[in-house]
Amino acid sequence: MDASDDASLPVLKMILIGPSGAGKSALLTRYCDDEFEPDLSQATIGIDYKIKRLSVRGKAYRLTMFDTAGQERFRTLSTSFYRGAHAVLLVYDISSRASFLTMEKWFEEAETYTVEGIALCLVGAKLDKADPASASSPTSETYEESSSSQQHDDDSGSSGGGREVSTEEGKALADAHGALFVEVSSKTRENVRKAFVETVNRVVTTPNLLDKVRLNRSGSIALENGGKGGRRGSKVDDAGAGSGYGLGYLPNLGNLGGCSC
């Protein structure tokens, strides 16, 4: 399949949120690259988003997955990060009660800045640590802790090693928000693919969700030069729903610069 075909596929935007150190980047890296680096807290630098081509129930999509770029560390995620999302993975660390306790706020933020009815999935990460045997061995895992003396509600606190949040509690919180729930381990791969599969499945089976998100974007068209289409809604403007205007799509682009006024 070549790039121009890709550009015409419907784009699904998924974002990962949750406290710093919960395991978001590890989850994304495991799913997309099948890699796991036990101590790579800076791994997310330079990664804006990852893309996967998906075939769901026989229909092709382009799934773009956006990581927080570390902006959650001091709780400085911008509202623009949430725009146009079809799905949100809300990630906490099952070995950190503190990380779980921030999830109510993350749900609130996700529900505030996204279109109603999008697919939410609560993800309990680091499932491998639930097993006391592996938990007792001091892993090299470090939390990306804020050194700031200011109170940052995202610091998940140090984890004791074993499970601090029961599966039942996680499930109950997810149910309260109508979210899916999966516990995963990026280290062992357990349930990693499941988290993504079930969430995407919910996106494509939720009636009108794609239309709703598109309308919320006012029919913006792909902006990239040459139509390689790195992002949302490539074709959606054909429906003529709105007044969004894509710069990259327009012919005179090369002449933009050099205005003296």
Binding site: A69, Q71, R73, F74, T76, S78, S80
Partner: peptide, 18 residues
């Protein structure tokens, strides 16, 4: 906001209320 996100993707550290 979008510019700041680009900054963060490039490794810049962000603190609001500071």
């Amino acid at each position: 906001q979008v510019s700041c996100r680009a900054g963060a993707v490039g490794g810049a550290v962000y603190m609001l209320g500071t």
